[in-house]
């Protein structure tokens, strides 16, 4: 067994500490058990962004064996400085909750039930409905005869879960269709 100086100091230090305390008759077992159980020990730290509002607090995601084990505010980020609100603090539950929707749900007109659908079906249907509405309702000129190419029958409601690039892409797609009513929804 090879020990460098640092290891040697560690081992002797620990040995002396254990000896002296146990000699005094302290039972250290329960306290040790508590202290040893740090669930993020050895976890990889991944910087992430809270998806809820436009403040975009940074979060450290602790990943162990490919699994998310804990999340907390990033103290090095100047905006939130390690702090989070109740929503940002619930990032772990957000990923683990049994209520999380993991498949597209569809509710047919006048139906009171949600049906699970695959992505292909959903995207196809959205595309068809958008095209139908645009073909029928695109307004090429206003009352003065000026060209406007406006589609007032479709609106885009965003989500604060979208980052800057996703917002830009959505905005461009909507503008291309002639949509003028857009809301990013990052005011909360």
């Amino acid at each position: 067994m090879q020990l460098n100086r640092r290891d040697f100091m560690k081992v002797t230090g620990a040995g002396i500490a254990c000896l002296s305390l146990s000699q005094l008759g302290f039972d250290l077992k329960p306290l040790k058990a508590y202290a040893a159980e740090l669930k993020i020990a050895g976890a990889k730290e991944v910087i992430s962004v809270c998806p809820f509002c436009s403040v975009s607090c940074h979060i450290i995601a602790h990943v162990k064996d490919g699994q998310l084990v804990s999340t907390e505010g990033d103290p090095d980020y100047p905006i939130n400085q390690g702090a989070l609100c109740a929503k940002g603090a619930a990032m772990l539950s957000l990923t683990r909750s049994s209520h999380r929707v993991t498949k597209p749900l569809y509710r047919a007109p006048n139906s009171d039930k949600w049906e699970e659908k695959d992505w292909g079906w959903v995207i196809d249907r959205i595309a068809r409905r958008v095209k139908e509405s645009r073909d029928k309702n695109l307004q090429l000129t206003n009352t003065k005869g000026q060209t406007v190419n406006r589609l007032e029958h479709v609106f885009a409601l965003g989500t604060s879960h979208m980052d800057n690039e996703e917002c830009a892409l959505t905005h461009q797609a909507m503008r291309a269709l002639g949509v003028v009513h857009m809301d990013h929804q990052a005011r909360i």
């Binding site: 508590y34 740090l38 390690g82 702090a83 989070l84 609100c85």
Partner: peptide, 22 residues
């Protein structure tokens, strides 16, 4: 409340203190 004994013994702040924005 455990005073986040596991965190505090490892030099970290309790979870409630770390998170507080005010």
């Amino acid at each position: 409340c455990t005073m986040c004994f596991d965190r505090v013994s490892n030099g970290m702040l309790p979870a409630c203190v770390k998170v507080c924005p005010t």
